[in-house]
Amino acid sequence: MTEMSVDQTAVERPPALPRRWTASRIWGSAAVAVWVLIGAGFVWYLASSWSLDFVEKYGPRYWSGLKVTVSLVLSSLAAGAVLSIPIALGRLSKNRYVGALAHAYIYTFRGTPLLAQVFLIYYGLGQFSNELRSIGLWGFFRDAWNCGFLAFTLNTAAYQAEILAGAIKSVPKGQWEGASALGLPRLFTFRKIIMPQALIVALRPYGNEIILMIKGSAIVAIITVYDLMGQARWVFSKTFDFQAYLWAAVFYLIVVEILRNVWAWIEARLTRHLIR
């Protein structure tokens, strides 16, 4: 290195070759140009239809919609996480019947559209309001938010159980054997040795699940809940102005992107000991 730098003044370097216009560069530039055009058109459209009136009149609605979306997603994710633990354990159980039951649960909720589940709970159970009233559960099902919450919880519990079960299975058997050789109780082993390793494996799928839930939550708009999508529909129905949807799209993208970056940061932080 040192010799090189000594000679550097003397050696005239040939100029770098101009980057050639290869086929892929042409395609790439064209594709980027298309995106730039779409982006510009989008900004132009929003800017040209920008009016303080719109913001003043409907801004608070979007804000409250965003809060409903976030609170609905967070609470059903939390409830789903709790519910997913017994299901995941059932999935891993050596008992055939328990295993089959847990599998059936997961399969059912992962195999059918969330929208169908929401309809079944909201309108389907609504048909039995008298029966539900007589056992005192109607107060819960009467509210559309609760129905959405229940459907999302049951749905995400199935996904989270599958993630959790997969992650626990991914921890090598030797970890269990090592712990039992040390005489550690099974529950302790599970909590202190298996779970920390499993959760790191599960980190990425969990992040995906949160994003899927945020996006999936848009469908509660159909059962009278005013989440972000619901508010966008409301504003659209008042104004018939397409920017009503575009703004909501922008907000969804922002939320998802923030979440993705935060999650990537958390993941990097928690797995830094694994980097070689």
Binding site: Y123, G126, Q127, S129, R133, W138, R142, A144, I222, T224, W234
Partner: peptide, 18 residues
């Protein structure tokens, strides 16, 4: 005030008492 996509849906919900 609850808004429904169609008239049929509010009919379902007044029957159930929502």
């Amino acid at each position: 005030v609850k808004l429904y996509p169609t008239a049929d849906e509010y009919k379902l919900d007044i029957n159930s008492g929502r």
